[in-house]
Every structure is written in structure tokens, then in C-alpha cells.
């Protein structure tokens, strides 16, 4: 099974490279080459982006398909790859305003070494975004994202009598200000905020006695992520082919794309963002 997933990943990379050869090279910040992350913009038809964090392809001008690379790479390390896909549609893009909707999922599993419990997880992500071009140099992007996370633990029957799951939901809002200083350098200032996060709800099925079973649902006040935020100044450098996005801010660590948030203490209130990618 792992080999199959690995082959799928390789095929995806090869396809991206093939498409890259067949398209004309594009880069630099222009009116057509626009930031994609945290914006309403998507890749033009048959354009490809291959990066450290994400591989994307423009199916048509209004529809982009992406896969995040980290779940694949982490999956290979954990010996269980995590298929994931995101569809982003820029359904409105006229004059100064663009609007988009995105839907995606990440599905995977890992083995808890301590308990020998296999934990399967599913993230489903829905986003709405808008981008406004104020002038040739300035743009503002705002959006919202809803992320549902479902973890399911499946213990070996011989070891235990419980099968459990945990669910958490997050709503995230963001705003990004973009200032193109030159055709290579764009300054960004991103604000992210979680106005609502559910408690973690843990579900489990237990055997109380031979004739009695129960489904347990427990609300866990694990970490209150409501009002988690980050303010991240950064830069996006865009050369002929290569692009680098780098920023360091203050607050919680937001895992962009998935809409997940790490407690601020996890990285000592440092909230980084980083990506390297090429566009063809």
C-alpha cells in the first residue's frame, strides 16, 4: 500500500515536470502572476507550481488543483503517506475584485508506538477568500477558513476493548496586505485570528461487561485555541522561475492551508511562514 502511494507521489511530480516543460516560463510579480497563498487568486490554465509546501496545477483559469507536499513527506517518514487534495475555484475575477472558494481534505494514519494504537485522521477544509487590487502595487486579501479534524484510534481487540475518536473544529479569519516594492519583491503583512474553536470531543466505544457496551463522548478542554492569532510581516521574492516566501511574526503558529493552529507556547510565540516554489 505504501509503495502505491509512493508511486502516486512520483507520478505527480513527473507530471508536474512534464507540464513544466510544455509551458512557457513565467515569474516576477505582474498583473497576471499573482500571489496564490492566502489570496483569492488561482493558477491560470495549464500553469504549474511546484514547491516545498505545495504542488498545484491550473486545470482551467477558474479552477486549480493542489496537493500539499508535507503530508506526503511526513507520511513517508512515518511509513504511512497521507493523501490530500485541494480544489480552489476563483469563481469571480473582474476588474479589481477576485473571489474564490476552496475545498480540500487530508487523510492519513500513524501508529502510536506507546499504545500500539493506529490513529487515523481526516481533515476537511473549506475556505472563502477575496482579493482586492487597490492599485498596481497594493492589494488586500481577506478570507475565512473552516477546518474539521477527526481522529479515529483503532486499538487491537486483543489489547483493549476501546475504539475511539476525537473531533475538533476551527474557524479562522485572515487578512493580508500586499505591497509590491518591485517586480521581484513584495512586502506582506498577514493577520490571522481564530474567533472560534470547538473543544476537543473524544469519542470511544467501551465494553462495560459482557452484556453492556457504551459509547463515551468526552469534551476535553485540551488547549483553548479561541482567539489564537498571529501577526506576520514577510516578503515574497519572485524571480524568473524561483519564488521564495518568508516571514516571521508573533503569535500562534498557523499551519497554512490546513487551518490548523499550534499553541503559541509551542514555538515561543514565534509564527513563521516559509515556502520555496517554481512556477511554469
Amino acid at each position: 500500500m505504501r509503495q502505491v502511494h509512493w508511486h502516486i507521489f512520483l507520478v505527480a511530480v513527473l507530471c508536474a515536470a512534464t507540464w513544466a516543460r510544455s509551458s512557457s516560463a513565467r515569474a516576477y510579480h505582474t498583473d497576471k502572476i499573482r500571489l496564490l497563498d492566502s489570496t483569492a487568486y488561482s493558477l491560470p490554465r495549464r500553469d504549474v507550481r511546484v514547491g516545498l509546501m505545495k504542488i498545484s496545477y491550473g486545470i482551467i483559469d477558474q479552477l486549480q488543483i493542489s496537493t500539499y507536499t508535507m503530508p506526503w513527506l511526513l507520511g513517508l517518514i512515518l511509513e504511512e503517506v497521507a493523501p490530500n487534495l485541494e480544489l480552489k475555484s476563483t469563481f469571480y475575477d473582474r476588474r479589481r475584485l477576485a473571489l474564490s472558494a476552496s475545498f480540500g481534505f487530508v487523510e492519513g494514519a500513524y501508529q502510536d508506538a506507546l499504545t500500539k494504537t493506529e490513529v487515523r485522521y481526516l481533515l476537511f477544509i473549506a475556505k472563502l477568500a477575496s482579493s482586492v487590487r487597490l492599485n498596481s502595487r497594493l492589494r488586500v486579501h481577506i478570507g475565512g477558513q473552516y477546518t474539521g479534524t477527526d481522529f479515529v484510534g483503532d486499538s487491537e481487540p486483543a489489547d483493549t476493548d476501546l475504539r475511539g475518536a476525537a473531533v475538533v473544529y476551527l474557524l479562522q479569519l485572515w487578512g493580508m496586505f500586499e505591497w509590491r516594492l518591485s517586480r521581484v519583491v513584495a512586502l506582506t503583512l498577514t493577520l490571522r485570528w481564530v474567533p472560534w474553536a470547538s473543544d476537543v470531543l473524544v469519542r470511544g466505544e467501551v465494553a462495560i461487561d459482557p452484556n453492556t457496551g457504551a459509547t463515551v463522548g468526552i469534551n476535553v478542554e485540551f488547549v483553548d485555541l479561541t482567539n489564537a492569532y498571529a501577526i506576520i510581516p514577510g516578503f515574497v521574492f519572485s524571480w524568473k522561475r524561483a519564488n521564495i516566501r518568508v516571514g516571521v511574526g508573533y503569535g500562534n503558529f498557523f499551519i497554512e492551508g490546513f487551518g490548523l493552529v499550534a499553541p503559541a507556547s509551542a514555538l515561543h510565540n514565534i509564527s513563521p511562514e516559509f515556502d520555496v516554489f517554481v512556477r511554469f
Partner: peptide, 25 residues
């Protein structure tokens, strides 16, 4: 509530619900 061995963790003063399904004797 210690369900760590079952892979769910330990819950301090847990709040939630139980749906019990009993087969009669």
C-alpha cells in the same frame, strides 16, 4: 479518567456523555 492504555489519553474531571447499550439477560 484514565483511558491512556486505550489510546485516548487521561481526562481530568471529564465532562461529556455516555450512551450505554445493554443486552438484557
Amino acid at each position: 479518567l484514565d483511558l491512556a492504555e486505550e489510546g485516548l489519553g487521561t481526562f481530568r474531571a471529564p465532562s461529556g456523555a455516555l450512551a450505554v447499550d445493554h443486552t438484557c439477560t
